[in-house]
Design a protein around this nucleic acid. Structure first.
Lengths: 258, 258
DNA sequence: ATGTCTTTGTGAACGCGTGCACAAAGATGG
DNA sequence: CCATCTTTGTGCACGCGTTCACAAAGACAT
């Protein structure tokens, strides 16, 4: 295998666009699947299809990492897995704490996708004293009082917040004060953190609301199309999903408070 | 309250940028909080701070919806809540099914953020016969066999997939065939759907991987800074978080398969 | 060795999103 | 009624990300 050791822009880590970084895990997942099926090489076209992106975009993304492909052949799967893993920092061990062991926290603790990707759940933390000592996903829950000590002892730099919204900022502050510099926030709040701390937010209800917007738009267009073609058939079949909807657009009186 | 009924571009639903749509739920949440505190009006500056965005961006976002502000005063909170809710389609009822009642599915079923925003969990569906009838979050789990009937009877157009990756595509196909046109996918797979069906993906491990990338970058810069200032102090304190890391960049031999 | 064929890597054009900066609008006080 | 002050709404410029399209690179057959 050639693996083109020609010029090598030598991991220009600093120049990788954010959008590309966000897609690397996607490629990595597709590549891992190929690797498990012992597929030796893959073309940009195939891999792009597996990852659900445009092939040109994929090639450009990889070009930021270096020249890891072989023209006329494609990419060596194993080699690419290694390169992307290294680029993402997954070749090292990342201890993670999860704070807030409710339904979601427990689900996260049980989630298998962590261990396989370099992440290790170092501790589960909850404010409820009744939870303390109770094992979740094989790990005993510890009380919030221990938070600082846990962070210190395990060298944790990534924290996951799965508490109710009201507690999130407070937990966040303590995590940051204890040395955590990356936070994954599941609580529906805007966290304020000092410079140098990264926060990523996952909000279930926001995702659903975005879907609802598009769904409404689709229903509106359908209704409009049905109205336009009202002469012929299409009676109420196409309007199945709307319940108390009154026309797609702003022809509603508009309540107006005050 | 004036509520500027001047020109009114009348809900140009069709022209709202995707990026704006993604932020509307954010604004809505901040506004709801203000509403609960009985705050009558809010300026773009204040609201932007509460939502964690730039105030110019917020004003531009709102400008796509229409002229709902009053110059010199700000925005009427209640009115804006109503307008955004309507724009997002949250004034109507959206029945939702959750497929795959494992840890995550149960967490989603118990998640309170749905009901308060126009979403109603119409049914919980799982492939395990042992789960059938067992109540989760007060709703009895139904078997996958019932899927099509449930979708039909409840007029469900939004489905949430929280199954293992292997089952996701199959479940997706059945949902789509039964009439679902929006899917929120928590399974770590790329779903293929026909045109007209929207899919949004939430992947916990991807978010963590993105955090790890930035964390690694930070650690690398720290190490570089420490190396640069190696003459004076800063011994091993700044390097606390790296365990088996060997220099920040591509100076590693690079394994090279094959 | 040479030609052909496949696939990468990338220059260039385009479009979208962001942020600045300011004019217009309206409230408020005298 | 006029002046002043606040805050919106937006024209404009800029930068990032996406996509096209193609030249260069290498494999492979003859």
């Amino acid at each position: 295998m050639a693996t083109g050791r020609t010029h090598r822009p030598a991991t220009r880590s600093r120049g990788i666009p954010e959008a590309t970084v966000a897609r690397l895990p996607l490629y990595l997942r597709a590549l891992t699947a190929l690797s498990e099926r012992s597929v030796p090489t893959v073309s940009s076209e195939e891999l792009a299809a597996a990852a659900g992106v445009n092939s040109a975009k994929l090639r450009k993304d990889f070009s930021y990492l270096g020249s890891y492909g072989t023209r006329g052949v494609g990419y060596d799967v194993e080699y690419l897995v290694y390169q992307i893993s290294r680029e993402l920092g997954l070749t090292q061990d990342w201890p993670v704490v999860i704070v807030g062991i409710g339904n979601l926290g427990a689900a996260l603790a049980n989630y298998g996708g962590f261990a396989s990707r370099g992440f290790r759940v170092a501790a589960l933390i909850d404010a409820d004293p009744a939870m303390a000592g109770k094992p979740v996903a094989g790990i005993p829950v510890q009380h919030t009082d221990e938070l600082e000590k846990i962070i210190e002892d395990n060298g944790v730099s990534i924290g996951v917040i799965a508490t109710p919204a009201g507690a999130a900022q407070q937990v966040c502050d303590r995590l940051v004060a204890a040395g955590v510099t990356s936070i994954l926030n599941f609580a529906p709040t805007v966290l304020s953190v000092p410079d140098g701390v990264d926060v990523r937010k996952v909000d279930l209800s926001i995702e659903l609301q975005i879907l609802a917007f598009h769904e409404q738009r689709k229903a509106g267009e359908e209704a409009a199309a049905a109205a336009g073609a009202a002469v012929d058939g299409i009676p109420a079949a196409a309007v199945r999903k709307q319940s108390a909807d009154k026309g797609p657009d702003g022809d509603v009186p508009a309540v107006m408070p005050a």
